[in-house]
């Protein structure tokens, strides 16, 4: 086996994995903190990708700068969805299942809106640096992947530090660990939940741009992305941001290595097969679930 090729596919896997991590972190948070399994999480990511595509095509805006538009927009949209759709279902007996059905509906509506606006054609983010490559010794780094990697790494770290270092972030963790006590000390649960949901969905938008750097996408792409989200949460532990980040990297590396050494048809088979094995050995995931 060729060492350079192994290291090269590790690099490529880590770069892909960081994007899965950013896409998955918010999904993990809404699941852990709010007990909402947001099936439409990846769909919001896809909206981020399409917004990046349109802003690039019409204004020549770099996909990373498009986040200045899409992140606040998705945050605001998520707050509205939380207020008018999620809050009513929190009174349901089984919030998790009800939330899945509700957000499944949201995903279908959004997918069809995207089909109307952007048509079913597959899209690519074609920037000035799409075909540029950074070469370091025997290794090469494709610029779009490098951009996606840096953006995702920064995104995950920002969310991590938000939860660990800011007052509002700590309140999110407190509300998750002890909802009653959090309220007794002045934390407004509904407001904190809305902020959590908003941040999760906005980070999905950024993750979607990262995915668009890696793959072509169409309005149906979120269905496959969603499966990666579940993998990230199951391996990384529900609500665990750093766990999700590591899970993303692991999945990326498995995919990267199998892409290099196996026929394409085997890649998903191996990725999902290995994760099933992980689940059989460690049913609670590799990491503890915690915010």
């Amino acid at each position: 086996m060729n060492t350079v090729l192994v290291i090269q596919s590790l690099i490529s896997g880590i770069m892909m994995g960081s994007v899965y991590a950013l896409l998955g972190v918010g999904f993990s948070l809404t699941w852990g903190v709010l007990k909402v399994i947001n099936i439409s999480h990846a769909t919001f990511g896809l909206i981020g990708a399409f917004l990046a595509y349109t802003l690039l095509k019409w204004l020549g805006m770099d996909p990373i700068f498009s986040l200045v538009v899409s992140v606040p927009l998705l945050f605001f949209l998520a707050c509205l969805i939380f207020r008018f759709l999620i809050v009513p279902i929190t009174k349901a007996k089984d919030v998790i299942v009800t939330s899945m059905i509700l957000t499944f509906g949201i995903a279908i509506i959004l997918e069809n809106l995207m089909l109307l606006i952007w048509s079913p054609d597959p899209r690519l983010l074609t920037t000035a640096y799409t075909s540029k490559v950074l070469i370091l010794g025997p290794f090469y780094f494709q610029y779009p992947k490098l951009a996606g990697f840096l953006m995702s790494a920064i995104g995950v770290l920002v969310i991590h530090f938000f939860l660990k270092k800011t007052y509002t972030g700590k309140a999110v963790r407190a509300a998750w660990q002890q909802p009653d006590a959090a309220q007794l000390y002045g934390i407004n649960l509904r407001r904190i939940s809305m902020i959590t949901f908003g941040i999760a969905v906005a980070s999905a938008g950024a993750g979607g741009v990262g995915m668009a750097f890696l793959y072509s996408f169409d309005p149906h792409a979120h269905n496959l992305w969603l499966i990666y989200l579940f993998l990230v949460v199951i391996v990384g532990g529900v609500g665990n941001v750093l766990g999700a980040a590591f899970a993303g990297l692991i999945i990326g590396v498995i995919t990267g290595l199998s892409l290099a050494f196996l026929p394409y048809q085997w890649v998903n088979l191996l990725t999902f097969g290995l994760l099933m094995v992980i689940l059989i050995i460690r049913p609670h995931g590799l990491f503890k679930g915690e915010v």
Binding site: R173, A174, Q177, Q178, D180, A181, L184, V291
Partner: peptide, 12 residues
Amino acid sequence: QVPEGRKLFAQM
């Protein structure tokens, strides 16, 4: 209120 069973934020 200091609630019964303390209800601390255990992982913090």
